[in-house]
């Protein structure tokens, strides 16, 4: 029987592990087999995480956090938790056929990219459709690309892609943007970037790879087609709650409900931290802080139930 099991390997999971390990609780952390390290593994410079005056690469920051957690005795397992049983005092964590039992569980699974939900998206993903400019931009040198979305991340993806592509068109469903004025101005000032507003992508077209997009005018309903070489989708992300959505209480935005400033969910002994509880800030530093909260909450729970 374990004292603490942590699911998730972003800043929230690793910070929870650092605190729990330093409290001698020998935490086991499930990191995922292929996405270990979380969202920051897909970015380059992180310039707003304190302590790194010249910035740090996302993957390097995450390797550092992992090492720091391991140094104090965290067992990091590169495996995916497949199901959970949370009733009763003993929480059951399944990894395929293998069962792990724990007194407390910290759920820090982060968020997953939102999909467009249109025809062609599933089939052509990885064949000209991408959710990660820093991962796949390299393959689109001299190409003609579309970025869908109207937030900061869409602007950032578009600007990053201009270092490779000849032309980047930002397609957005309305005329108003959620992106900050600074980011929007920067994108507008970039001569390789064009905008198509009041338009939604309604179909992705291509046999072996993406060749064009069908756009639907969100005002008139008229459709049109544009030829492209690649599509980058940046329309936000949703909390990754498929393991617990029928067990834990969720907010309207899909995040897990926690009690006040704590990490306590509606099930005793189960704590949640990071982007999976945060519909507002969603930064590395807030995720790390909430991981700390979860570790201390779990520790207090163990002391109270000793």
């Amino acid at each position: 029987m374990h004292d603490v099991i942590i699911i998730g390997s972003g800043p929230a999971g690793y910070t929870a592990a650092i605190y729990a390990a330093r409290a001698n609780l020998s935490p086991v952390l499930f990191a995922s087999s292929v996405e270990s390290g979380g969202d920051l593994m897909t970015t380059t410079d992180v310039e707003n995480y304190p302590g790194f005056p010249t910035g740090i690469q996302g993957p390097e920051l995450m390797f550092n956090m992992q090492q720091q957690a391991e140094r104090f005795g965290t067992e990091v397992r590169l495996e995916d938790v497949t199901s959970l049983e949370l009733d009763g005092d003993v929480k059951k964590v399944w990894v395929g056929e293998e069962l792990f039992e724990t007194k407390t569980l910290i759920f820090a699974t982060g968020s997953a990219y939102r999909k467009l939900g249109v025809e062609g998206e599933e089939r052509l993903s990885g064949r000209g459709i991408s959710w990660c400019a820093t991962c796949d931009g390299f393959f689109f040198k001299g190409k003609n690309l579309v970025v869908v979305g109207g937030g900061d991340s869409a602007m950032e993806e578009a600007m990053f892609l201009t270092t490779f592509a000849d032309k980047v068109t930002i397609v957005h469903r309305s005329e108003t943007f959620r992106a900050s004025p600074v980011m929007l101005d920067r994108a507008r000032a970039n001569e390789k970037i064009e905008f198509i507003t009041n338009s939604a992508v309604s179909r992705v077209i291509g046999e072996e790879a993406v060749t064009s997009l069908e756009l639907t005018d969100t005002v008139t309903g008229a459709t049109s087609e544009i030829e492209i070489d690649g599509l980058f989708i940046a329309i936000g992300s949703d909390p990754r709650t498929h393991l617990i959505h029928d067990k834990l209480t969720l907010n309207d935005d899909g995040t897990i409900v926690v009690d006040g400033r704590s990490s306590k969910t509606n099930i005793e002994g189960v704590f949640a931290a990071g982007d999976v509880v945060d519909g507002t800030y969603r930064q590395a530093v807030t995720a790390a802080a909430s991981g700390m909260v979860a570790a201390l909450d779990a520790q207090h729970h163990l002391e109270d139930h000793a």
Binding site: S33, V34, G96, G126, R127, D136, F139, F140, E208, G230
Partner: peptide, 27 residues
């Protein structure tokens, strides 16, 4: 025509017979 990595292609007799895109767990 690689546009996303990791991309794992199985070649047999000089032809691509299987195409796997994106990281996946071992199983």
């Amino acid at each position: 025509q690689i546009t996303s990595i990791p991309n794992m292609k199985v070649f047999k007799g000089g032809e691509v017979v299987k195409d796997i895109i994106g990281a996946k767990p071992k199983a």
